[in-house]
Design a protein around this nucleic acid. Sequence first.
DNA 1: ACAAGATTGTTTACCTAGGCAACAATCTTG
DNA 2: CAAGATTGTTGCCTAGGTAAACAATCTTGT
Lengths: 153, 153
Amino acid sequence: MPMTQAKSLDAEAETSFGPMTEELGFHLRRAQVAAFKHFAQSVTAAEGITPGLYGMLQVIASNSGLSQSRLAEVMEVDRSSIVKVVNQLTEKGLIKREASATDRRSYHLRMTSEGKLALRRIEDAVARQDREFSAGLSEDARRLLISLLKRLY
Amino acid sequence: MPMTQAKSLDAEAETSFGPMTEELGFHLRRAQVAAFKHFAQSVTAAEGITPGLYGMLQVIASNSGLSQSRLAEVMEVDRSSIVKVVNQLTEKGLIKREASATDRRSYHLRMTSEGKLALRRIEDAVARQDREFSAGLSEDARRLLISLLKRLY
DNA sequence: ACAAGATTGTTTACCTAGGCAACAATCTTG
DNA sequence: CAAGATTGTTGCCTAGGTAAACAATCTTGT
């Protein structure tokens, strides 16, 4: 059992969460917060990449040349949010905006060679982090959990 | 199946998410975002209560008289974040700050009678919402998913 | 052909949720 | 009783996201 802040838990009858503990959303939220913190302490601390940025990077890497609008669609966020993200990743030297030959309004997003190199490193860190985070689960349990989660979206 | 934006998915080779699809954190994040949106469209739209506020309400309701500091501990957020939340819930007339007889620095947080009434209504809405959200899962699958999630935190 | 309309990236303003640091008032303890 | 810890609060900051407006540029209906 983790000893996060169990100090005060036996002082006053075990602080209850009420009927929420029956709800899927409650546990989903807690698990996600835990996952985010775990990610932050390893990957974000080491590489300065948040889960959100990592997602963007991977989508750009595996769909080379896509436009910002399309990236926004895939990530299900507003086009205006993409601008900041692309700026950040560009400033880090990981990706570049390449002018489109056929549409002067839009860019093709691509990894830089430096970015490709960095992504390989980050990928490893994320994979390690993910295994660490799910260390309490057997490989079967982990796959089962993933398949159940997929059914929710 | 939801038809969120499947329109463009067959246009250009099915937009890949890369190796992320093997990661638990990725699916956890997506599921949580989906859960949040579902919650927002039903409970938040109807009652003006976000998942975060609902959590606070339930902890206050089932631990009547707890202090703001203790609430912060339980919810694992900073004390200063609690101030805003308590203000919001107080302005909505759902809870009240009650002066402590033994410690003039701190308050006992309690539901108002109006708040208790509202919570019963909100609880129902949340329970309904949660069942709807997990409609794709059998009762067994749902319980299994919850127990797997618990093992992550 | 070309006017009307749609799309792309961008800026600006705004919101939420949270952390961190400082602070006065108030306990607690050596 | 002095020194230290705790409580609630404020102000400032960041991350992430939305919504509306805009100029530049495509696309389309006629």
